[in-house]
Write a protein that binds this DNA or RNA. Structure first.
Lengths: 110, 110
DNA sequence: AAATTGTGAAACCGAGTAGTTGCACATATA
DNA sequence: TATATGTGCAACTACTCGGTTTCACAATTT
């Protein structure tokens, strides 16, 4: 059973859960109200998110609040670093092109 | 058939392909040499990456060079924005705690 | 104590996935 | 022209995945 963050965020429902929990900790029932599928289906998604540590449990009486663990999500960000360099340089190139067009445009109109 | 970037990067082989192609454009055969599975398996991964526009084809004689499309990868980065705010603020809090501990430590020793 | 509520776990199912082998076909090379 | 090479596509298979239904169980509420 593969259980890494990349596989975890591959599912749109799980991404939606993360988006909700990131705002404030929530119980499974509260989360399930936001989706069309059953509470059990949502609960299974939560289980997966807990297993890969994107969510953390916090028992409170008989309710369980799940909260978002940003540190784990940052691992995605770290992985993106190797590509960020590339798209930033391309944006720079695009910026240069745009700036050149702009200055030509200015030349023409002034 | 779901074909979005999140599902595309969920597979470790595809992530490895992206890492290689990000360095420079490569042919399927050249890529396949880096993996244990067959060329056809790698080719299927490439197809998926092309379908979700993370890779772009570039025919050259009978060879096909695949190159990385950073713009598409940036969509992951954009999605992360909603969480980035959170982990950055928590890091700030951690920094504050560390700074306080540090100043207490300094107090004790000076 | 009995009923209700919040939750997780197990069993099952249809669809999707990653891999394989085998084939087709176009482009280069002899 | 015959052969080798680079590539994509189709068929098949074992496995995974997301969903449902059903159950178990502990913590509240009546």
């Amino acid at each position: 059973m593969r259980r890494d963050i990349f596989q975890a965020i591959a599912d749109p429902t799980r991404r939606a859960i993360l988006g909700l929990v990131a705002l404030h900790a929530m119980t499974p029932n509260a989360l399930a109200e936001h989706f069309d599928s059953t509470r059990q289906a949502v609960s299974k998604h939560i289980k997966i998110l807990v297993e890969c540590q994107l969510l953390e449990q916090q028992q409170q009486g008989r309710e369980i609040y799940y909260q978002f663990n940003p540190q784990k999500m940052k691992e995605i960000d770290n992985w993106l670093d190797q590509f960020r360099r590339i798209w930033e340089s391309r944006f720079d190139k695009l910026d240069n092109v745009l700036n050149q067009l702009k200055s030509k445009d200015n030349d023409r109109h002034e």
